[in-house]
């Protein structure tokens, strides 16, 4: 996994309280990792914090899996 993926995984494990081996590329935050709508808002905030990037609301709505987050951050994070 890339450095970005590792950092994303760490955040997801910490915020959603899930086992690390469940945080795979295809894992959907809500359907697979037990997040609710507020959790996803907070996850996006945590990604912004960790990667020092602003994720606009319309972009945040497209981040529904671990892979979505990794791809977005690899592309947009400094």
């Amino acid at each position: 996994m890339s450095d970005v993926a590792d950092r994303v995984k760490k955040i997801v494990v910490e915020h959603l309280g899930v086992e690390a081996d469940k945080v795979v590329e295809n894992a959907n935050f809500i359907d697979d990792l037990g997040a609710d709508s507020l959790d996803t808002v907070e996850l996006v905030m945590a990604f912004e914090e960790e990667f020092n990037v602003e994720i606009p609301d319309d972009a945040a709505e497209t981040i529904v899996t671990v892979g979505d987050a990794v791809r977005f951050l690899e592309k947009n994070a400094a």
Binding site: L38, E42, M45, E49
Partner: peptide, 10 residues
């Protein structure tokens, strides 16, 4: 305001 958690109020 963008740093206020969605869990702040509840």
């Amino acid at each position: 305001p963008r740093r206020i958690s969605p869990f702040f109020i509840p």
